[in-house]
Design a protein around this nucleic acid. Structure first.
Length: 233
DNA sequence: GTCCAGGGCCGTT
DNA sequence: AACGGCCATGGA
């Protein structure tokens, strides 16, 4: 049997239930007493090649110092910033990256994220990619999870999944992204796509952690009927 | 002690 | 275009 993105989504969702990463509802916003979209932007940068548990500690540090705002990061002493995000690893370059995007958003949009996200998706994406330290995955994570604009995020797990399961796509970031978007927009209405893309990306990450690891656990894999990469069987 | 995580940049082929 | 080294902490 061959697998489609829609089937993949249904199988993983049924197995795990919804994961709801990076919520942006009003109660979450109030609880944190800051713009939760900026928190997502910071999280997207801090989690580059890093376990989320290490990122959470850094976010907690920034929150407890009441620093999770564009203007405050922009003005924060760089050594202090490095110290606060230390647990997330690569803290020197990540501190620079947080400074860069905060400066950019403050200088060009006066820190107004409504203004920043209220433009064409290509314009937003190209601007993000022009900032040093923001590549395709980080840019798309920011657009999807902070901007709530439908774009499918391709990460290392998604690439690995596509290498093992024979989807009808080539394996570059762009090809995989286009393939998932093309297939899923056939099935779901456009106003559902943001939710679907958020949830599917999250599901793929969890699936990659639990089953489709570097050394995969194919024996118990929920996708084994669709996969030709068998191991441990 | 070893491996690896919700990448991206830069230099070399 | 594709690959390798590098960045660094903390949990398994």
């Amino acid at each position: 049997m061959n697998l489609t993105p829609e089937k993949l989504y249904n199988i993983l969702l049924k197995k795990n239930g919804p994961l709801y990463w990076w919520p942006i509802d009003e109660s979450y916003h109030k609880k944190n007493n800051s713009d939760s979209r900026f928190e997502i932007i910071v999280g997207a940068i801090l989690t580059q090649n890093t376990a989320w548990s290490n990122v959470e500690r850094a976010l907690d540090n920034l929150k407890s110092e009441n620093m999770l705002e564009i203007k405050k990061i922009k003005e924060l002493n760089i050594s202090k910033l490095r110290y606060l995000i230390k647990s997330s690893g690569f803290f020197n370059q990540k501190a620079d990256r947080l400074k860069e995007i905060s400066n950019y958003l403050k200088n060009k949009y006066d820190g107004n994220l409504n203004e920043f996200f209220n433009r064409g998706i290509n314009e937003i994406r190209n601007e993000l990619l022009s900032i040093n330290g923001i590549g395709p995955e980080t840019a798309d994570s920011i657009i999807l999870y902070a901007g709530c604009i439908p774009i499918f995020v391709v990460d290392a797990y998604t690439k690995r999944l596509c290498k093992r399961i024979p989807f009808d796509t080539k394996l570059s970031y762009f090809e995989i992204q286009n393939y998932f978007q093309k297939e899923l927009s056939k099935v779901y209405k456009s106003d559902e796509l943001t939710k679907i893309y958020k949830e599917l990306h999250a599901q793929i990450v969890i699936f990659g952690k639990n089953y489709c690891k570097k050394k995969p656990l194919c024996k118990k894999c929920p996708l084994k009927d669709y996969c030709c990469f068998k191991n441990n069987l």
